[in-house]
Write a protein that binds this DNA or RNA. Structure first.
Length: 656
RNA sequence: GCGGGCAUAGCUCAGUUGGAUAGAGCGCUGGCCUCCGAAGCCAGAGGCCGCAGGUUCGACUCCUGCUGCUCGCGCCA
């Protein structure tokens, strides 16, 4: 299915190139120059600055010339030069012919650019023993959308959920269960999470250790503070003084942050009292550290048993693992997420040693502070790539090297995408660099599809927020509104409110460029007005409602009867949809599609509301021929919104 | 300390890879339900695009410096 706008672009570029006697291979460049102008100017604009350079002519003259080449092409209903810009307007006939019929097909927006090619997408990736939490939302939702979009573009799409199903956290859960677990609730995933949280606290060595380090840290800071104060007193210039003052201030604030609970001494006024308070706390923390270390050892021991193939330990591991997975699947189902494969660290345990060997062969390894690192050139201050700890255990980069190689061997991918937060940029940089150094030429097909953070989600008393509960809250809000409007058949109400509530969350996450951070605000999330998921769903439901009244769109209609400005704007928005699918696929950027869908819904809302004021603009008007054409357009709208929402991971209820 | 990211309307954010008069949602002001769905539509007010330079036909966009916020930085993933 050729994308309508792209066809117009190609035609314009071709006319320009031919007319100016420029080589055909400049066409992609010309196309890339094109812009969607302010609607007052036209439907498509071509700035002629670089084109002028190519033809060695004045851009204003070039624009005039290009316009003259478009004169007898029925594709354009208007073409004009505005200074160095060419503005064209698509002829209504060409536009309608290219869009309305096509958009009524469920295949509208699909294409074949990925035909015969494979994309592997690694996304979501929760840890067994931990809950599917709010912070998994982005990877899950973005990854799911990217996977569906690739499939729509004809790629063979392999979605992999790479579980954190191995490692110390598992030992913590298993050993913690003996102390805190309720045997009757062994298969209750929520209970396992509670146990895990407690076990994690039991074995927390970092906190007591930090408390014990504080006195030394405080002394060092105090020393630096003293120096900074001297520097401040003897500062020769105003600039120097400003810098020193800043240093003093920052050191003082660092000192204050060392202050724990119950220590009210101000380090800047009475340092000795402060220090002795810290020392007392450090002393008191020793037993806590010892017990935490004991629990930690116990957990590591369990992991050792697992690695040695101890059958009892493995049986327990399998049991906990499947309990967790069942819970994950329940939540994924709510969000319409599916994976081709569920894999995990555990399945790569056996190849890790072999992987380390490969790295040792090429590019080689070095020992550093007892750990084995990859021999790679490094930027100053850059952390090395640790292959093995000083205890000889491997780290996650080792596993990622192994999985990357394995995935290439299994799927011969053309793209391998890792939908992981931006915070792990360094890790992926190093992973790809290591793979390159190992001699794999397919590394450039791998991409870290990074996304920004979500700020401001209250972590209720420091605990993680269950994704499930976030969804529930939005669904509850949707129920409230739906019950008030009483428009939905009670038999499907549960499904409908589920679609709307979850849709609001998913759509909200996909609305902005994935790399941007965003602020999570409950008031905003639960407000379904404005350009939200429910807004698009609502528009879809309106279209469905009209089609219901008319008992469907007729098979035949004369599209020339679509003459309203509102109709043209809607058709134009529909026309841009297939390009949005391709663009969002190429850039792995679902927000491009989200925006296109919002544009369509906006144009549709405008059109459908115009009928309130002016009866002649109603879809269900008296003139049969007009009514037939309009019904086809509304059907195209309905279909396109449904397809777009589906690609983004939203359901499209027929009433709400 | 080193490295990355961000700074645009009161708030939350877009800005099509350097193009025309910088947009949207929320909030605010005013209008529209004898109903093709008001979860909607229309109109309006609201901007030193953080600051200072530079690059060129042209800069919110690219470069340099500064300020502020944020994230990451060896044996966790």
């Amino acid at each position: 299915m050729a994308a309508p706008i792209e066809a117009f672009r190609q035609a314009l570029a071709q006319s320009a190139a031919r007319g100016l006697e420029l080589p055909e291979d400049l066409i992609p460049e010309i196309v890339s120059q094109m812009r969607t102008p302010d609607p007052g100017h036209g439907d498509l604009a071509l700035p002629c600055f670089t084109l002028g350079k190519r033809a060695k002519k004045n851009p204003t003259d070039v624009a005039k010339q290009v316009v003259s080449y478009l004169a007898d092409d029925p594709r354009w209903s208007a073409a004009s030069a505005a200074g160095p810009y060419v503005n064209v307007r698509f002829s209504d006939e060409a536009l309608k012919a290219a869009v309305v019929r096509a958009a009524r097909e469920p295949t509208y927006g699909t294409n074949t650019v990925g035909q015969g090619r494979t994309t592997v997408i690694d996304f979501s990736a929760p840890n067994i023993a931990k809950p599917l939490a709010f912070h998994h939302l982005r990877s899950t939702v973005i990854g799911g959308a990217i996977a569906r979009i690739h499939a729509a573009c004809g790629y063979r799409t392999v979605g992999i959920n790479y579980l954190g199903d191995w490692g110390k956290q598992f030992g913590l859960l298993a050993t913690g269960f003996k102390r805190h677990g309720d045997p009757a609730r062994r298969h209750d995933a929520k209970h396992l999470v509670e146990v895990y949280v407690k076990a994690n606290q039991d074995a927390d060595t970092a906190t007591p250790r930090a408390i014990m380090d504080r006195p030394a840290e405080a002394r060092a800071l105090a020393e630096r503070l003293k120096e900074a104060k001297v520097a401040l007193a003897s500062a020769a210039t105003a600039d120097e003084g400003k810098r020193s003052a800043k240093t003093v201030k920052s050191l003082e604030s660092k000192l204050r942050t060392l202050r724990g609970v119950g220590e009210n001494e101000d380090p800047t006024t009475d340092f000795d009292a402060f220090l002795s308070a810290l020392e007392a706390a450090a002393l008191a923390a020793r037993p806590a550290l010892e017990s935490a270390e004991a629990y930690d050892r116990e957990a590591r021991l369990f992991l050792k048993r697992l690695e040695d193939g101890d059958e009892d330990a493995l049986a327990e591991w399998r049991e906990f693992r499947s309990t967790s997975i069942a819970e994950f699947e329940r939540v994924y189902a709510r969000m319409g997420i599916a994976f081709t494969y569920w894999e995990g660290e555990a399945s790569y345990q056996s190849v890790l040693e072999e992987t380390v060997q490969k790295v040792r062969m090429r590019p080689g390894t070095e020992m550093s502070e007892g750990a084995e690192i990859v021999a790679l050139p490094r930027k100053p201050n850059e952390a090395p790539v640790l292959l093995k700890t000083r205890d000889g255990t491997t780290l996650y980069i080792t596993r990622d090297i192994a999985t990357a190689i394995d995935r290439y061997e299994r799927f011969q991918f053309d793209r391998s995408l890792y939908v992981v937060g931006e915070a792990q940029s360094l890790h992926f940089e190093q992973l790809f660099r290591t793979l390159t150094a190992m001699g794999f030429d397919w590394v450039d097909r791998c991409q870290h599809v990074k996304f920004g953070r979500v700020h401001g989600m209250s972590t209720r008393r420091g605990q993680v927020v269950f994704l499930d509960e976030v969804l529930d809250e939005a669904v509850a809000k949707a129920r409230e509104i739906c019950e008030a409007s009483a428009r939905v058949d009670p038999g499907v109400l549960d499904d409908v409110v589920e679609s709307i509530g979850i849709g609001a969350i998913v759509f909200g996450d996909l609305r902005n460029p994935r790399a941007s951070d965003y602020r999570f605000d409950w008031a905003e999330v639960l407000d379904f007005s404005g350009h939200t998921g429910p807004y698009v769903q609502y528009t879809h439901a309106r279209a469905c409602s009209i089609l219901r009244k008319a008992e469907g769109a007729p098979d035949e209609a004369d599209l020339d009867r679509l003459t309203l400005d509102e109709e043209r704007a809607l058709i134009l928005a529909l026309a841009r949809y297939p390009d949005a699918v391709i663009d969002s696929c190429n850039a792995c950027e679902p927000s491009l599609l989200t925006r296109a869908v919002i544009e369509i819904a906006g144009a549709a809302a405008h059109y459908l509301t115009a009928g309130n004021k002016d009866r002649n603009k109603r879809v269900l008007t008296d003139d049969d021929a007009v009514r037939a054409a309009r019904l086809q357009l509304v059907d195209a709208l309905r279909q396109t919104l449904a397809s777009g929402l589906a690609l983004l991971g939203l359901k499209a209820p027929e009433s709400m």
